[in-house]
Computed example of a mutant assay.
Amino acid sequence: MKGISLYSGAGGLDLGFLNAGFEIVWSNDFNVNACNTYSHNIGSHIRCGDIDNYTHELFSLKNIDIVIGGPPCQGFSVAGKMDPNDPRSKHVWKFADIIEIIKPSAFVMENVKALGTLSKWKPLRKSLLERFRNLGYSTSYVVLNATEFNVPQKRERVFFIGFKGNPQIIPDLEKMMMPYKKKAPTVREVLSILDKAGTGNNKGYCKAKITLTPKPVLRKSPFAGMLFNGMGRPINLDDYANTLPASMGGNKTPIIDEKELYENQTGWVQNYHAKLLAGSKPMEFQNAPNRLRRITVEEAKLLQTFPLDFEFLGSQSSQFSQIGNAVPPNLAESIGKMVLDCLISETLEKVIIKLPHQLEMEING
C-alpha cells in the first residue's frame, strides 16, 4: 500500500511504516539537515522546503492508501509556551487540508501528549475530530507510551488515526493496539551492542560538561529531582530512559555512568543521592566525576530505536535534534501494522464503538 509522509523529519515515522509493509512514495520536511538524513537513509523521494511550494506535485499523486505525519508540536508542548496563536500550531490544519484533497484510505497524525490530554487543548481536539469526521473518516485519538511498543524510552505521544468510512463510528484505538504491544528492553540491554563512548561504533561523543548543583532538589528516585546543573538527568540503566528532547547536545543531554555501564559497578548517582538523603552536604562548585558523561549520538539513536547503521547528517547538535524530534520507529511500526491489518482485512467494525452517545461524549466530554 502506498503512503505519503508530511512533516517527515529524519524519517522515524516513515521507517516504522516501511517496516510494517507500506511503501512511502512522497515525503516533505522543511529542515535541510533532516531532509539530507532522510534522503541518505530512506530515499530521494523527500522534498525539502515549505510544503506550499510542492502542492501541485503532491496533489497530482493518485491512489494513495495512507497519509502520515507529525506536524510541528512546539505550540502544544508543555516545554514551550503553549500559545494557541503559535504559527507552528496551524500545521495540524494543513494536515487536515491535505487529507481532504488526497482522500487516503487512512491517516495517522502524531503530536505531543499535551494535545491529547490537557484541558487547554480540548476545543482544538474537538475541532480536529469534527473536521476529520466531516471529511468522512471514522476517527479517534489515543495516547501511547513507547515503552509498551519495544522502545526503551518513557515517551508518550498522541496519535489521531482515521479510516475512511462511516464517520459516526469511533475506532477503539486502545483495543486495536493491544495485539501489537511488546515490552521494551532496558537501556543497558539496548546499549550493550556499542563500544565505549568515543570509539568504534560509538564515536559521536558529547563534550558538554556535567557540573553538580550546590542546591540539589531531591526526590525519592536518584534519577528524578535535580543533582546537576542544567536539564540533563541521569539515566537508570536497568529501566527506561526519559523522553529524549530535541534540545540535546548541551546541558539538556541525559547523563550516563560509564563504570556502571561497562564495569557493572554501583552507580555513582545512586550513592551520592543516598548520602544526600542521609544528611550529607552537597558537593559544591565542582565538576562531576569523570565516570559520568552525556549520552552519545549513537546511544540516543538506539534509545529512539533507529538501527545502528542509520546515519544522521549535519552537525552534532542537528543530529541530536533530529533524533529527539523523531517518532521512535518501533512505535511507528506497531501503529503501521495495526493500520495495515485493518485496511487489508477490513475488520475495523469488529473493534469499534458504534453507539452515537459515545461519539457525543468524546466530542463534548
Rank of each mutant, 00 (worst) to 15 (best):
L194I: 06
M176T: 05
A184G: 11
G162I: 06
P214A: 07
I193H: 05
S247M: 13
A224D: 15
R233E: 06
G136E: 04
M248P: 06
G249T: 13
K207H: 14
K252S: 15
I161F: 14
L218R: 10
K209W: 12
M176N: 02
M178N: 09
G165P: 00
V158Q: 08
E258W: 12
L261E: 09
M177K: 04
T199R: 14
I235H: 02
F223P: 07
L244R: 03
P216N: 10
P171A: 01
N242E: 14
I255G: 09
R155N: 03
P167G: 00
V190S: 01
E130T: 14
P234K: 10
D172M: 02
G165I: 00
L237A: 02
C206S: 12
S138N: 01
K182V: 06
K220E: 15
N242M: 13
N134D: 14
P245G: 11
A224V: 10
E174C: 07
G136M: 02
K215Y: 14
M248E: 07
L212F: 14
I235D: 00
I256N: 09
T199E: 15
P216K: 10
A224I: 13
E263T: 09
P222M: 09
N202S: 05
N202C: 08
A208Q: 10
G225Y: 14
I161D: 12
V143F: 08
V187F: 10
F132C: 00
G204L: 08
P171I: 02
F228W: 13
N229P: 07
S140C: 05
G198F: 08
K154C: 06
L135G: 00
G198E: 06
N150I: 06
N264T: 03
M231H: 13
Y205R: 14
N264P: 00
E174P: 02
L194R: 05
K164H: 12
N236R: 11
M177G: 04
N251F: 15
L194M: 06
F149T: 02
I169L: 06
L194F: 08
Y141K: 04
N134Q: 10
A197T: 11
E174N: 12
G249I: 14
P167R: 03
R219T: 11
E260N: 06
Y137A: 00
K175E: 11
E189I: 03
P234C: 10
L191T: 06
M178P: 02
I210T: 11
N150L: 05
K196M: 13
T186I: 03
N166A: 02
R219N: 11
K259D: 15
V217I: 15
P185F: 00
Y262C: 05
T186M: 03
K175H: 10
Y205A: 13
P214V: 07
L173K: 00
P152N: 04
E174M: 07
N242Y: 14
K259I: 13
L191N: 07
